[in-house]
């Protein structure tokens, strides 16, 4: 293993021109993912977390496009590659797992055909070998009777089994990076536990870097090594999962944690963040969070939005919460 991170996103900006002006769903976002590491990307809807993932795999829907910043895959820039070059990278170097398994599987091909096709496209193996590998891949993700099920079509699988097939498909060409966008949101709790356990085990065994996009703090807590919290297109906080979740420095992360029902167990009312995330077309000046922030000061309203680098390296906040100050507030 070298020291270069598998994925390195540097000052990424994604813009969408609309008739109401230029929107920035991703604004100056930077992070790294090392081999074997799971980075959780959390945020509420509209925070830009899926858009970041789509930018990395080159699946931005036009007119959205990357306007500045860079994306490095194992040190190689990929943000300026053409469509066909990106398509070769996808699958070989990057695997994808989406929320709805049906969208990532071709309904007209059997699972085996899709797997061996992907394997043969990216690895130099014979038809028979590809098929054997496909069966092995299905066995690995825990599909019973894999050698028989390989001839089934996607609709013949249940939701959980389908997501297992998608994981097999994402990992079959041995990529370095997997982007999982809300992989368990459509699944039941018990199936979600199965899928997350599988994803964690496979990625650890193979040393794959994972970008896990989700809105579920519980999933992040259990799966991620580090976590990136996004708000209105920007990174609000970035750090080790235990530090960020138990000792948030950004008031938004703090409020998000506090407003989950479990954190307020025993309380009659939940702690709530007032208001809602602003629409991209109507971002407030200064720090985008200041209208909802109970600690907001003049600087938050006037100065341009803080970034993690311009602050303490962890939270994009001019006045990050210190541990003692939070205890003070609680007392």
């Amino acid at each position: 293993m070298t020291d270069t991170p598998v994925l390195s996103v540097r000052n990424l900006v994604v813009e969408i021109p609309t008739r109401h002006g230029l929107l920035r769903p991703v604004d100056d976002v930077s992070y790294d993912i090392e081999a074997g590491e799971i980075l959780g990307v959390v945020g509420e809807s509209g925070a830009g977390k899926s858009m970041t993932g789509n930018a990395v795999i080159g699946l931005l829907d036009p007119p959205a496009r990357i306007t500045s910043g860079e994306i490095l895959l194992s040190g190689q820039p990929i943000h300026n590659l053409g469509r066909s070059a990106l398509r070769r990278l996808r699958g070989k170097k990057m695997g994808m797992i989406f929320q709805d398994p049906l969208t990532s599987l071709n309904p007209l091909l059997t699972v085996g055909e899709q797997l061996s096709e992907t394997i043969r496209e990216h690895l130099d193996v014979s038809h028979d070998q590809a098929r054997k590998r496909a069966v092995a891949a299905l066995e690995e993700v825990g599909i019973p009777a894999a050698s028989a099920r390989i001839n089934s079509y996607p609709h013949e699988f249940s939701g959980g089994m389908r997501q297992r097939v998608v994981i097999a498909l994402a990992l079959c060409a041995e990529p370095d990076l997997v982007i999982a966008d809300e992989p368990t949101t459509a699944l039941d709790v018990s199936v979600q536990a199965q899928i997350m356990a599988l994803l964690k085990r496979l990625c650890r065994e193979r040393g794959v870097a994972v970008m896990l996009v989700t809105h579920d703090m519980g999933v992040i807590a259990e799966a991620a090594d580090r976590v990136a919290v996004m708000y209105a297109g920007r990174l609000a906080e970035l750090g080790g999962v235990r530090e960020v979740l138990t000792n948030a420095r950004h008031p938004y992360t703090d409020g998000l944690m506090a407003s989950t029902p479990l954190a307020s167990a025993g309380l009659k009312r939940l702690r709530q963040i007032p208001g809602a995330m602003p629409r991209l077309g109507a971002l407030p000046t200064g720090c985008a969070f200041h209208p909802r922030c109970e600690y907001a000061q003049d600087r938050c309203r006037k100065d341009p939005g803080p970034t993690i680098d311009s602050c303490d390296g962890r939270a994009a906040c001019w006045f990050p919460l210190a541990t003692d100050r939070k205890e003070e507030a609680q007392a």
Binding site: S190, A193, E222
Partner: peptide, 24 residues
């Protein structure tokens, strides 16, 4: 019991659970 064990926990950092058996 299975449902409670499978639900993700906010303080379950790195928790390894025995995944529930089977499907509905």
């Amino acid at each position: 019991q299975m449902l409670f064990a499978a639900a993700p926990k906010m303080d379950g950092f790195g928790r390894e659970i025995e995944a529930p058996k089977g499907e509905i």
